Computed example of a mutant assay.
Amino acid sequence: MAGKSEPVASETIATLPNAGTVRIVLLLIALAFLLVAPFYLYPIFVMKLLCFALFAAAFNLLLGYTGLLSFGHSAFFGGAAYFTAHAVKEWGWSPEFGILLGVVGAAVLGLIMGAIAIRRQGIYFAMITLALSQMFFFFCLQAGFTKGEDGIQSVPRGVLFGFIDLSEATNMYYFVLGVFLLGMLIIWRIVNSPFGMILKSIRENESRATSLGYSVARYKLAAFVMSAALTGLAGGIKALVFQFATLTDVTWQMSGEVILMTLLGGIGTLIGPIFGAGIVVTLQNYLATSDFPVTIITGVVFMVCVLLFRRGLVGEFYASRLGRRLGFNPEN
């Protein structure tokens, strides 16, 4: 009987679909779910999830694919939220130009902070980004246009491209979904480009990348700015979704949350941060009105995942026997 079991097993493995087919099917299912989600779920909840999923994916571009741990990404997320909210409310800009200003502002902040931080490595890099983000936090606390502790309230969503009224929840949802898909497409293209291959080589062995003639500092800075700009895109749409920008968006706790999301889902994976963001946002949403302390529950979930799923949920699946048989690899 033992001799007959091996052909059966091999035939079973042979009949498994390849990774490309599985990814296409899963992608279509996920897209179909997102298209109908606002009719079955609270639209604001789903939009918040999409904003933070893009935030985590942008952060993962720096941590997972370049190997740089930043504790300062809240500056780009909250900074873009402030820039977008101020431009739309005070200057009367249309939402698309307000978001564009947020992205540009976040990229400029990323260029300044990155130029300073990439001079150091490891924990020193992380601490420098944290210090710089705290400086930006106190700037937002004191600056006049941010309205201090009150923040910028009652931000109008405006009219997109002159004819799409974003005050309607359905229109706003599909706009956020479009921005999310665009952001993920950009991240996928960066990761799978020659530039992305160089970032991965820097992550794996920086000295070898330098010996091959690559200007490691320039590639790190470019990755930092790209991550900051995409984070700004998430921050800008978040300001329009909730119609406010406050100091909560630029606190160090916000940087901690996005690190948590990325680690839960799996660093160095394209969809891992999306799953991580979904877990954290769902816990925050459904535990907010309960008697359970949200931070403690989130901390317990994080602790369990770190102990049992060292690579994150998606990373562990990719490393499992089923994931290997299907042909998945951690960077898909």
Rank of each mutant, 00 (worst) to 15 (best):
L308Y: 14
I297M: 05
F275S: 06
F77Q: 02
E204W: 06
Q243R: 09
L166V: 12
V159D: 05
Q253H: 13
G114T: 04
G102N: 02
K48V: 08
T246D: 07
G236H: 02
G102L: 09
M197V: 13
Q243G: 10
F45Y: 15
G151Q: 09
L68W: 11
A75R: 00
T15I: 13
F224E: 04
V179E: 01
I112M: 05
K48T: 12
A87M: 06
A223V: 10
L35E: 08
T231D: 01
Y214F: 15
L322G: 07
T210I: 07
G268V: 09
S290C: 08
E331H: 14
A143I: 11
I116M: 00
S207C: 07
L41P: 04
V281S: 03
R203I: 10
S193T: 14
T298L: 09
G213E: 11
L177P: 04
G323Q: 11
K48E: 14
I271T: 14
G158N: 02
L185M: 13
A19S: 15
A223C: 05
P7C: 05
I267S: 14
L132F: 06
G268C: 09
A209Q: 04
A229R: 03
A277P: 01
A229F: 02
S227I: 10
F292S: 06
G64P: 06
S5Y: 11
A2W: 12
G148Y: 01
F136N: 01
L63D: 08
M184L: 14
S133F: 00
E316W: 08
A131N: 03
L199Q: 05
P43V: 09
